[in-house]
Design a protein around this nucleic acid. Structure first.
Length: 305
DNA sequence: CAGGTCAAGTAGCACC
DNA sequence: GGTGCTACTTGACCTG
């Protein structure tokens, strides 16, 4: 027994003691009288106060309390009444317990136990509900994550594809491929590349732009990429990607070409390390402008190897 | 008859 | 120490 308490389920006297109620015959009578007209008569409940009161003889009274109790379910009316009270307040004050017991024709102990069990059932249901919410949330996040992984793989493939194409172009054209599309240049400058930039940052940035554009050629996982030239992204050398810088109309074609080649000797100029002296067959001679506009990039996708 | 449900029993804990 | 609570168990009853 817990804490020396006596829970005599089959002995009302003991039960009443356990509830801190008087168990003298007078007090018991008073209690029984007060319960003589219960609102609910649990025909199958363990102790029905009306039945007790009906068994007016001392013998029957004794028999009623000493025969081994069999567990009886509360009647639907009793359960409904308890449920309504539970909705109002799931905790049970002593006074309320007595009152409910009177109205239901049950022992206060029975009411207390019903509330205890009801709280346990409510908690179990609440846990199930919480689990359902968490699981759906987890499933949604998992789906998002898997989609992002697929997108990442797709973009990686795109990077490889474009890099290969550029390298093949470089082989054909001996001019360094530094004159990148204006659109690409602008996008990259909006994303200062530092060593702390994560893959996901680039991915998100690309998503904000046109995913099919060349912005995806920057492979964040490659340490040899533009990450080694932060000034490129920071815009410290804005002239590098000024489209007209290498096709200065004030210079002759020959002069312009010299300037272009000189600039490409500077490490700073090689902002895209993977692009080693690319040349393009359709390049205007003596200039560094490849006429490489983003709008013209789409056909790149379909170039055969 | 197995398994589910529910009232009741029990142990342990916190609070006063 | 008494009391009330939670968590877990037990046993009666119900149901397919």
């Amino acid at each position: 027994m817990a804490g020396g308490r006596v829970y005599g389920g089959s002995n009302l006297n003991v039960v009443l003691q356990g509830e801190g109620l008087p168990c003298s015959s007078d007090a018991l009578d008073a209690l029984l009288v007060s319960c003589s007209s219960p609102s609910f008569h649990g025909a199958r409940s363990m102790v029905n106060f009306e039945e007790i009161n009906a068994n007016s003889t001392e013998e029957d009274f004794d028999e009623c309390f000493h025969q081994p109790e069999k567990k009886r379910r509360l009647s639907p009316d009793q359960v409904q009444f308890l449920e309504k009270n539970f909705e109002v307040e799931n905790k049970l004050e002593p006074e309320r317990k007595i009152q409910l017991a009177r109205e239901l024709g049950l022992q206060p102990r029975q009411v207390a136990i019903w509330f205890q069990n009801r709280r346990a059932r409510w908690k179990t249901k609440q846990l199930e509900k919480d689990y359902g919410v968490l699981k759906s949330s987890y499933d949604a996040l998992k789906a998002d994550y898997e989609n992002l992984l697929k997108e990442k793989e797709k973009l990686k493939t795109e990077v490889v594809l474009l890099t290969d194409k550029l390298l093949s172009k470089e082989r054909d054209c001996q001019v360094p491929a530094t004159n990148w599309p204006e659109k690409l240049e602008l996008k990259c400058q909006t994303t200062p590349k530092t060593e702390t930039v994560k893959d996901s940052d680039l991915l998100l940035n690309c998503k904000q732009e046109d995913l099919s554009s060349n912005s995806s050629v920057f492979d964040a996982e490659s340490p040899t990429e533009a990450g080694n030239s932060p000034e490129f992204f920071a815009g410290n050398s804005p002239e590098i990607f000024e489209p007209d810088n290498y096709s200065d109309s004030s210079l002759g074609e020959e002069e312009s070409g010299k300037v272009c080649k000189e600039r490409f000797k500077s490490p700073q100029a090689f902002v895209l390390p993977k692009l080693e002296e690319p040349t393009y067959p359709d390049q205007a001679s003596g200039t560094c402008n490849y006429g490489f506009h983003v709008d013209d990039q789409e056909p790149l996708w379909f170039w055969p190897y």
